[in-house]
Design a protein around this nucleic acid. Structure first.
Lengths: 207, 207
DNA sequence: CCTAAAAATTAAGATAGTTTAAGACCGCGC
DNA sequence: GCGCGGTCTTAAACTATCTTAATTTTTAGG
């Protein structure tokens, strides 16, 4: 096994910077532990991107080749229907993963566009690079097993709420569960996440 | 590595039955490969259950300790609201996994009851046993990573459809995506999956 | 084969949500 | 400091969906 010390001795890079300042590693290490060498290896294969407000990192209809982690800022993933109606699928704030997972995993055209709500720093992982990481750092399988497990649980709860609760109840739940998001997004975007018109959400809130 | 032949020679069990007749291993081996010894190990820690129509394997409000795989038959997972309204979260037919994942993973009270729609043979995996399997057969992390990844993709698509499509469109999608399920369940249950009343679904179908 | 119970259909009146349109209120670039 | 575009609110008319209840059809069990 490649230890930290051994890595330093054999390090092809002149300087080994500790990776602890990256939020992404704090995120990963909530579930598995990584050596400094592994972190160095991972980050060396990532792109760290600064993007502006309204900039899009994925365009509906294209192939999605990247998985994104949000170091700072916030983004929105949404679908635009043939009739021009936007439906927000998810918001991502600091410390969240985001992509069009179906497009990323199955290399199908994206149903979603992803757009920055404010200036963001994000880390992008390429599809093929991630597949290699799974081979060389198998504990990443465990990490993403847990990530997807939680994502599945969240989405299933959302599906339940969306078929069983009234709009008012769903709005309350949203505000309660995601207070950090409520502060960053417009009411129109919340409406498009709940699946109602902004006018109707406005009238629901009045009560 | 423990091969099949070597396993027979050292097998503590008097008879080694090939496990290929279990659907669950065909399911697992869609994504990873298992040795006969590993299959034997896994199955020895499972319960294979035969349950009758209408029998419940999970009751809303209780702790869910098991993950289920459907060898044959079909089941339904649903939530019963305080007002007495049933919402169907998922159907599971042959070759599907089913449980209240939030309850199973986080050991919280179940939001769902799970009930057989017909006589079923199911395989049940205990929570703690699965955690041990992850340790001793790490490739199971990969298997469930893929399973949860697909489950997440499906649920996210469902969430999108439920906020963006009309009832008629969602009904069409359901029939198209799950023809095997449509044949086994009542229209009332489909309505409760789509989040509409049976009366309304009936009137939608008339057109 | 018969019957009771559940499911499906139909229809009328009530509620939830949309559409359209108008006016008030920003925040931002010139 | 002005004007422009996007957002939020309000309201009226319209459509989708629910509720209730009655009627028919299907199903399961003895």
């Amino acid at each position: 096994m490649l230890t930290y010390t051994k890595f330093i001795q054999t390090n092809p890079f002149p300087i080994l910077v500790s990776m602890t300042h990256y939020q992404i590693f704090r995120n990963i290490q909530k579930h598995i532990s990584l050596t400094e060498a592994e972190k160095q290896h991972i980050i060396s294969q990532c792109d760290v991107l600064d993007i502006q407000k309204k900039q899009r990192i994925l365009e509906q209809g294209k192939l999605c080749k990247k998985l994104y982690f949000v170091e700072s800022g916030s983004l929105r993933a949404f679908n635009l229907s043939a009739e021009g109606k936007e439906s927000t699928i998810m918001f991502a704030v600091k410390d969240w993963w985001i992509t069009d997972m179906n497009s990323f995993v199955n290399q199908k055209p994206a149903l979603l566009s992803i757009e920055a709500l404010e200036p963001c720093q994000i880390i992008s992982l390429d599809f093929h690079v991630l597949e290699q990481h799974y081979q060389f750092i198998p504990k990443l399988e465990r990490f993403f097993r847990i990530i997807f497990q939680n994502a599945y649980i969240r989405e299933q709860l959302r599906a339940l709420q969306s078929i069983s609760l009234t709009t008012e109840e769903r709005y309350r739940q949203f505000v309660e569960n995601y207070p950090a998001i409520v502060e960053k997004v417009t009411q129109k975007q919340i409406a498009s996440y709940l699946g109602v018109t902004p006018e109707f959400l406005s009238s629901v809130k009045k009560k």
